[in-house]
Write a protein that binds this DNA or RNA. Structure first.
Length: 238
DNA sequence: GTTGAGCGTT
Protein backbone atom coordinates (compact mmCIF):
# COMPACT_ATOMS: atom_id res chain seq x y z
CA UNK A 1 0.00 0.00 0.00
CA UNK A 2 1.18 3.43 -0.63
CA UNK A 3 0.79 5.67 2.28
CA UNK A 4 3.39 8.21 1.41
CA UNK A 5 2.96 11.55 2.87
CA UNK A 6 -0.22 10.56 4.55
CA UNK A 7 1.03 10.46 8.07
CA UNK A 8 3.98 12.72 8.37
CA UNK A 9 7.58 11.79 8.01
CA UNK A 10 7.90 8.12 8.82
CA UNK A 11 11.62 7.77 9.10
CA UNK A 12 14.02 10.42 8.04
CA UNK A 13 17.02 9.50 10.05
CA UNK A 14 19.06 8.70 7.02
CA UNK A 15 17.26 9.84 3.99
CA UNK A 16 18.04 12.22 1.23
CA UNK A 17 15.31 14.33 -0.18
CA UNK A 18 14.92 15.11 -3.79
CA UNK A 19 12.77 17.83 -5.11
CA UNK A 20 10.63 16.97 -8.07
CA UNK A 21 9.50 20.01 -9.91
CA UNK A 22 7.25 20.56 -12.85
CA UNK A 23 5.06 17.66 -12.01
CA UNK A 24 1.51 17.51 -13.09
CA UNK A 25 -1.20 18.68 -10.78
CA UNK A 26 -2.61 15.25 -10.67
CA UNK A 27 0.60 13.34 -10.28
CA UNK A 28 0.49 11.41 -7.08
CA UNK A 29 3.09 9.62 -5.05
CA UNK A 30 1.93 6.36 -6.47
CA UNK A 31 2.91 7.57 -9.88
CA UNK A 32 6.34 8.66 -8.80
CA UNK A 33 7.20 5.75 -6.62
CA UNK A 34 7.69 3.12 -9.33
CA UNK A 35 9.78 5.57 -11.24
CA UNK A 36 12.12 6.55 -8.48
CA UNK A 37 12.20 3.23 -6.78
CA UNK A 38 13.88 1.72 -9.78
CA UNK A 39 16.99 3.74 -9.20
CA UNK A 40 17.26 3.29 -5.49
CA UNK A 41 15.56 2.69 -2.24
CA UNK A 42 12.79 5.19 -1.83
CA UNK A 43 11.78 5.53 1.76
CA UNK A 44 9.13 8.13 1.40
CA UNK A 45 7.44 10.37 -1.07
CA UNK A 46 5.74 13.52 -0.09
CA UNK A 47 3.73 15.79 -2.30
CA UNK A 48 2.72 19.12 -0.81
CA UNK A 49 -0.90 19.77 -1.33
CA UNK A 50 -2.94 22.84 -1.25
CA UNK A 51 -4.66 23.54 2.02
CA UNK A 52 -7.88 24.54 0.44
CA UNK A 53 -8.29 22.15 -2.41
CA UNK A 54 -5.99 19.37 -1.39
CA UNK A 55 -4.61 19.04 -4.85
CA UNK A 56 -0.98 18.77 -5.67
CA UNK A 57 0.93 21.96 -5.94
CA UNK A 58 3.03 20.82 -8.81
CA UNK A 59 6.06 19.43 -7.07
CA UNK A 60 6.96 16.51 -4.91
CA UNK A 61 9.64 15.28 -2.57
CA UNK A 62 11.19 11.90 -2.93
CA UNK A 63 13.36 10.64 -0.14
CA UNK A 64 16.02 8.15 -0.86
CA UNK A 65 17.87 6.03 1.56
CA UNK A 66 21.27 6.56 0.05
CA UNK A 67 22.80 9.59 -1.47
CA UNK A 68 24.36 7.92 -4.44
CA UNK A 69 21.05 6.46 -5.44
CA UNK A 70 19.45 9.81 -5.05
CA UNK A 71 22.12 11.33 -7.18
CA UNK A 72 21.58 8.74 -9.79
CA UNK A 73 17.88 9.33 -9.74
CA UNK A 74 18.50 12.99 -10.27
CA UNK A 75 20.60 12.22 -13.25
CA UNK A 76 18.20 9.68 -14.62
CA UNK A 77 14.87 11.18 -13.98
CA UNK A 78 15.70 14.80 -14.44
CA UNK A 79 13.96 15.84 -17.58
CA UNK A 80 11.94 12.67 -17.78
CA UNK A 81 8.45 13.05 -19.00
CA UNK A 82 5.99 12.02 -16.37
CA UNK A 83 2.31 12.24 -16.83
CA UNK A 84 2.79 14.37 -19.87
CA UNK A 85 5.00 16.85 -18.09
CA UNK A 86 8.72 17.06 -18.02
CA UNK A 87 9.74 16.84 -14.44
CA UNK A 88 12.79 18.35 -12.85
CA UNK A 89 14.61 16.31 -10.30
CA UNK A 90 17.12 17.91 -8.01
CA UNK A 91 18.25 17.76 -4.45
CA UNK A 92 16.09 19.56 -2.01
CA UNK A 93 17.62 22.66 -0.61
CA UNK A 94 15.56 22.96 2.48
CA UNK A 95 14.06 20.31 4.59
CA UNK A 96 14.86 17.93 7.39
CA UNK A 97 17.72 16.47 5.46
CA UNK A 98 19.12 19.66 4.11
CA UNK A 99 22.08 19.97 6.39
CA UNK A 100 22.92 16.37 6.05
CA UNK A 101 23.10 16.81 2.37
CA UNK A 102 25.34 19.72 2.93
CA UNK A 103 27.60 17.68 5.09
CA UNK A 104 27.22 14.61 3.00
CA UNK A 105 29.28 16.26 0.31
CA UNK A 106 26.57 15.43 -2.10
CA UNK A 107 26.57 18.88 -3.44
CA UNK A 108 30.30 18.70 -3.64
CA UNK A 109 30.06 15.79 -5.96
CA UNK A 110 29.98 17.32 -9.39
CA UNK A 111 27.21 15.86 -11.47
CA UNK A 112 29.27 14.54 -14.29
CA UNK A 113 26.39 13.83 -16.58
CA UNK A 114 23.68 16.24 -15.89
CA UNK A 115 22.74 16.22 -19.48
CA UNK A 116 20.26 18.88 -20.21
CA UNK A 117 20.47 18.57 -23.92
CA UNK A 118 16.90 19.51 -24.34
CA UNK A 119 17.00 22.52 -22.21
CA UNK A 120 13.64 22.97 -20.74
CA UNK A 121 11.67 26.01 -21.47
CA UNK A 122 13.51 29.19 -20.65
CA UNK A 123 10.94 29.56 -18.00
CA UNK A 124 10.56 33.30 -17.81
CA UNK A 125 10.27 33.87 -14.14
CA UNK A 126 8.37 37.04 -14.27
CA UNK A 127 7.02 37.82 -10.89
CA UNK A 128 4.47 40.38 -11.77
CA UNK A 129 0.99 39.53 -10.86
CA UNK A 130 1.25 36.11 -9.37
CA UNK A 131 2.62 35.01 -6.08
CA UNK A 132 2.54 38.54 -4.84
CA UNK A 133 1.33 37.77 -1.40
CA UNK A 134 3.97 39.99 0.12
CA UNK A 135 3.12 42.65 -2.34
CA UNK A 136 -0.47 42.57 -1.28
CA UNK A 137 0.49 42.67 2.32
CA UNK A 138 2.35 45.87 1.76
CA UNK A 139 -0.32 47.54 -0.24
CA UNK A 140 -3.13 46.27 1.86
CA UNK A 141 -1.99 46.24 5.39
CA UNK A 142 -4.61 43.83 6.42
CA UNK A 143 -5.08 41.55 3.55
CA UNK A 144 -5.98 38.01 4.04
CA UNK A 145 -3.28 35.47 4.27
CA UNK A 146 -2.73 32.78 1.72
CA UNK A 147 -5.07 30.52 3.53
CA UNK A 148 -7.48 33.17 4.49
CA UNK A 149 -6.17 33.60 7.96
CA UNK A 150 -6.28 37.07 9.27
CA UNK A 151 -6.04 38.36 12.72
CA UNK A 152 -9.18 39.70 14.27
CA UNK A 153 -11.14 39.48 11.10
CA UNK A 154 -12.29 35.97 10.70
CA UNK A 155 -14.50 34.91 7.92
CA UNK A 156 -17.97 36.03 8.58
CA UNK A 157 -19.59 32.86 7.42
CA UNK A 158 -17.26 30.29 6.11
CA UNK A 159 -20.26 28.18 5.36
CA UNK A 160 -20.76 29.82 2.03
CA UNK A 161 -18.97 33.09 1.89
CA UNK A 162 -15.52 31.64 1.80
CA UNK A 163 -14.49 31.30 -1.78
CA UNK A 164 -17.00 28.73 -2.79
CA UNK A 165 -15.72 28.59 -6.32
CA UNK A 166 -12.26 27.51 -5.30
CA UNK A 167 -13.29 24.66 -3.11
CA UNK A 168 -15.71 23.49 -5.62
CA UNK A 169 -13.93 23.82 -8.88
CA UNK A 170 -10.66 22.43 -7.62
CA UNK A 171 -11.71 19.85 -5.19
CA UNK A 172 -14.30 18.11 -7.20
CA UNK A 173 -13.50 18.16 -10.83
CA UNK A 174 -10.86 16.00 -12.32
CA UNK A 175 -10.44 15.97 -16.01
CA UNK A 176 -8.84 13.46 -18.27
CA UNK A 177 -5.59 14.72 -19.57
CA UNK A 178 -5.94 12.62 -22.66
CA UNK A 179 -8.81 14.68 -23.81
CA UNK A 180 -7.10 18.00 -24.06
CA UNK A 181 -3.79 16.38 -24.64
CA UNK A 182 -4.65 15.13 -28.05
CA UNK A 183 -7.02 17.86 -29.00
CA UNK A 184 -5.27 20.77 -27.48
CA UNK A 185 -4.87 22.23 -30.90
CA UNK A 186 -8.46 23.07 -31.18
CA UNK A 187 -9.24 26.69 -31.31
CA UNK A 188 -12.32 28.75 -31.09
CA UNK A 189 -12.22 30.93 -34.15
CA UNK A 190 -15.92 31.45 -33.78
CA UNK A 191 -16.76 35.09 -33.46
CA UNK A 192 -17.46 35.71 -29.89
CA UNK A 193 -20.57 37.55 -29.05
CA UNK A 194 -20.51 41.22 -29.49
CA UNK A 195 -19.72 42.92 -26.30
CA UNK A 196 -22.92 44.09 -24.84
CA UNK A 197 -22.09 46.50 -22.11
CA UNK A 198 -25.59 46.92 -20.92
CA UNK A 199 -27.39 43.78 -22.04
CA UNK A 200 -29.74 45.51 -24.44
CA UNK A 201 -31.32 48.20 -22.38
CA UNK A 202 -34.90 47.72 -23.30
CA UNK A 203 -35.78 51.28 -23.14
CA UNK A 204 -39.47 51.79 -23.00
CA UNK A 205 -40.22 49.75 -19.97
CA UNK A 206 -37.87 49.61 -17.15
CA UNK A 207 -37.97 46.30 -15.50
CA UNK A 208 -39.71 46.35 -12.24
CA UNK A 209 -36.35 46.76 -10.64
CA UNK A 210 -36.79 50.44 -10.84
CA UNK A 211 -40.36 50.57 -9.74
CA UNK A 212 -40.79 52.07 -6.35
CA UNK A 213 -42.70 49.11 -5.17
CA UNK A 214 -43.55 46.30 -7.41
CA UNK A 215 -46.60 44.39 -6.66
CA UNK A 216 -45.56 41.15 -5.09
CA UNK A 217 -48.75 39.50 -6.06
CA UNK A 218 -48.26 40.32 -9.70
CA UNK A 219 -46.29 37.80 -11.62
CA UNK A 220 -44.49 38.51 -14.87
CA UNK A 221 -47.10 36.43 -16.52
CA UNK A 222 -49.77 38.62 -15.19
CA UNK A 223 -51.12 35.98 -12.96
CA UNK A 224 -51.72 36.48 -9.36
CA UNK A 225 -49.39 34.52 -7.30
CA UNK A 226 -49.97 35.49 -3.79
CA UNK A 227 -47.87 32.97 -1.99
CA UNK A 228 -48.51 29.86 -3.91
CA UNK A 229 -45.47 29.54 -6.10
CA UNK A 230 -42.31 31.28 -5.15
CA UNK A 231 -41.64 33.43 -8.14
CA UNK A 232 -37.99 33.29 -9.05
CA UNK A 233 -36.60 36.70 -8.49
CA UNK A 234 -34.16 36.48 -11.31
CA UNK A 235 -34.55 40.05 -12.32
CA UNK A 236 -31.92 41.34 -10.05
CA UNK A 237 -29.08 40.72 -12.39
CA UNK A 238 -27.21 43.89 -13.03
C1' DG B 1 -12.79 20.91 -16.01
C1' DT B 2 -8.85 26.74 -15.57
C1' DT B 3 -3.42 27.98 -13.33
C1' DG B 4 2.59 26.24 -14.16
C1' DA B 5 6.65 29.36 -10.41
C1' DG B 6 8.91 26.66 -6.82
C1' DC B 7 11.34 23.84 -1.70
C1' DG B 8 7.75 19.78 2.46
C1' DT B 9 3.92 17.00 6.06
C1' DT B 10 2.91 15.25 12.26
Amino acid sequence: MSHFGRAGPPDISDTYSLLILNTSFRTTADDLFPLFDKYGKVVDIFIPKDRRTGDSRGFAFVRYKYADEAQEAVDRLDGREVDGREITVQFAKYGPKAERIHKGRIIEKPPRSRVRSRSRSPRPRYRDDYRDDDYRRRTHSRSRDRYGRDRGHHYQSRSRSYSPDYDRARGRARYDDERWSRSRSIESPGPRRSLSPRRTPTRGRNHDSRSPSRNPSLSPNGRHHDSRSPSPRSRYQE
